[in-house]
Design a protein around this nucleic acid. Structure first.
Lengths: 199, 199
DNA sequence: TTGATTGTTCTCTAAAAGTTCTCTACTCTA
DNA sequence: TAGAGTAGAGAACTTTTAGAGAACAATCAA
């Protein structure tokens, strides 16, 4: 349990970091709290650290960090587990964080927004984002961004026929696969991820 | 985490490159920052480079480059535009970066992996991740994580009937909505996003 | 090729910050 | 009222940082 002054100091440190992007010095804390002695401030900071409210980087100035700071700028979400109809939420063993950056972001990837319903059967809807890894070849079954005749871009499942013709298959039972001569099709990337944002 | 002076130097370099089309020399940075020693400026530039804010071309003068934005915040992806069957990729005006962290990550959110096909009609498939914002109430039409009788968790569309009963609607034409007395249902959060990772 | 300019590495120094310690004043309790 | 405990002041010390500047290497242009 924090004392009243410890609480005030923690508040001040929070505000300072929010405003300056880095921790305050002991002297600055002292000035704000009207404590003239660095030593006293140091004792408070140590108390807050031992109580787990702060993290303190030894060595170096402005080494005060908020204990939960890592959650602030990161792309990780706590992972609650699996959910299924008729069962309680089930934990996923050996994994308790989902890191979006690690999962989706890489040098040679980019995002596209999907228009239309041509991939609706595999859960890619109008307005969804897809994450594409740039490359110029694909394997059968990959979902690719293909440029046809150097002008029409499209997201389709890729298949190479025995005779070398290229089949681009929409994942929508209402639409039909299209077949092209290989020189008409240029692969621009393959699908690595899909995401959707609900308002 | 950049210190205040590192921040100022980065700003100056940005401005200089914008204005002159090439990076400044160490002496020019020093003059702008009122630092007389090249060595000191060099140390700052190295610090900025190691922190990923700058790229430094060895060999040659004025070898300072701004780092790729995508490397700086590894949660952003370049945005190529919209893709639709039968049309070239169309640029999205006023937006050229997609920030996953900003879009999906927040304090009171967590991720769940979906099992089963009960939401397949709105593109949420078996194995997908959903991002849930914790809250204990919902509006009609929201998709919620609901705990039934304190034991079964489920992802369904929420509807409150005029008589106070709660309807949980699966988005799968093969499944039927279920109706519960309000005291049997506890809302654990509402759906904010969905994502899928292709191997 | 040459010389001026620029970048790199190093040491030195002073200032600033962190750490540890003691001393004193105050409050609380028996 | 005496002793224990607590909080602030501040001195003494160590560590870290920032700037200066020297020495040297690399680069570019004439």
């Amino acid at each position: 349990m924090l004392t009243q002054l410890e609480q005030r100091i923690l508040e001040f440190i929070r505000g300072y970091i929010a405003q300056h992007g880095q921790g305050p010095t002991l002297t600055e804390i002292g000035a704000a709290m009207e404590i003239k002695s660095k030593g006293t401030v140091h004792r408070y900071v140590q108390a807050l650290t031992s109580k787990g409210a702060l993290e303190h980087v030894e060595r170096g100035w402005r080494g005060i960090r908020l204990a939960n700071e890592s959650q602030l700028h990161s792309t990780t979400l706590p992972l609650a587990g699996r959910i299924a109809a008729g069962h309680p939420i089930e934990a996923i063993p050996g994994q308790d964080q989902l890191d979006l950056g690690e999962l989706f972001v890489s040098d040679n990837r980019f995002a596209l927004q999907v228009k239309g319903d041509s991939m609706i059967d595999i859960g890619i809807l109008d307005g969804d984002w897809v994450i594409i890894e740039q490359c110029h070849t694909a394997h059968d079954g990959d979902i690719v961004v293909a440029l046809i005749d150097e002008q029409d871009a499209t997201l389709k499942r890729f298949k190479c026929l025995p005779d070398g013709q290229i089949l681009l298959i929409p994942e929508n039972t209402d639409l039909s696969p299209m077949q092209y001569a290989p020189e008409r099709v240029r692969i621009q990337g393959v699908l690595m991820g899909q995401l959707r944002h609900y308002a």
